[in-house]
Design a protein around this nucleic acid. Structure first.
Length: 265
DNA sequence: CTGGGGATGGGGCCC
DNA sequence: AGGGCCCCATCCCCA
């Protein structure tokens, strides 16, 4: 089943009031227990502006139901592309090739994306999209691949915690959050790089499950998990074994299938 | 062993 | 320019 049921815009209303979550200089020292090791905290310019969660603030989950509406999938069931054999299982930073398989939207046989990044070779449909991409393009985020073009290589912004380099301060700041983990759960002290990650985590405490399956009674706290679940309702699943044509709801299952020995191989 | 759910991380894009 | 969201990917665990 294609994920044409995945309507892109579920949220028509605006988000939680993040002004509540303003600057806390060091949320970790008092809140985070030892069992949640944190990356080394940067001082000054990098750390302070990244804090998003004031000590003592507990998310008002009461506002969430109004913000998250259940998925209302379309009922289209045209079989989608299943050949995902080129997907990598190990790389979390998608390469340009992998990026083309990231979505199960029907592939355009002749991509209209004729604006190509000279660094990472990703294609975009318009100059604006390309321009936006190039603000943060570091060759896919992989330092090994970053801006290999001699002319294009600027690497003006380098993370001081790891080898990653970025071409914009904004991209670097976002990356640094993965080191500083400024968003701290006041319930358990676990820290996250982004507010929405924390929000999802807090649902594990509250039990809130705003994403309901339209085919059964199950509900999920996370949209991605609902999406994975919806695969289980589909007869033809997204990931197909190239050898035996058997389909799987998850790539990990397909991987297991191939590794443990597909009967057709 | 397989399939599925829970939880989480990160890049890209939209506003 | 930056915040926030979307989507994908992956790991872990359990039935």
């Amino acid at each position: 089943m294609p994920r044409s049921f995945l309507v892109k815009k579920y949220f028509t209303t605006k988000k939680p009031n993040y002004s509540e979550l303003e600057s806390q200089t060091d949320p970790f020292s008092a809140v985070v227990p030892e069992r949640y090791p944190l990356a080394e905290l940067p001082t000054g310019e990098n750390g302070s502006s990244d804090a998003c969660y004031p000590a003592g603030l507990v998310w008002n989950v009461g506002i969430l139901p109004a913000l998250y509406t259940p998925v209302s999938p379309s009922t289209t069931s045209a079989p989608g592309p299943l050949d995902l054999s080129s997907q990598s299982s190990t790389s979390s930073s998608s390469s340009s090739e992998e990026d083309e398989g990231r979505t199960s939207d029907p592939p355009s046989p002749e991509p209209a994306d004729c604006f190509q990044c000279t660094r990472c070779r990703k294609s975009y449909s318009g100059p604006a999209a390309l321009s936006r991409h190039q603000l943060t393009c570091a060759g896919g985020g992989d330092p090994q691949r970053a801006c290999s073009s001699p002319a294009g290589r600027s690497s003006a912004f380098r993370c001081k915690h790891c080898p990653k380099e970025y071409n914009s301060l904004g991209a670097l700041k976002m990356h640094i959050r993965s080191h500083t983990l400024p968003c701290v759960c006041t319930t358990c002290g676990k820290a996250f790089s982004r507010p929405w990650l924390l929000r999802g985590h807090i649902r594990t405490h509250t039990g809130e499950r705003p994403f309901s399956c339209p085919h059964c009674s199950r509900a999920f706290a996370d949209r991605s998990n609902l999406r994975a679940h919806l695969q289980t309702h589909s007869e033809v699943k997204k990931y197909q074994c190239g050898a035996c044509s058997r389909t799987f709801s998850r790539m990990s299952l397909l991987h297991k299938h191939t590794l443990t020995g597909c009967a057709s191989t």
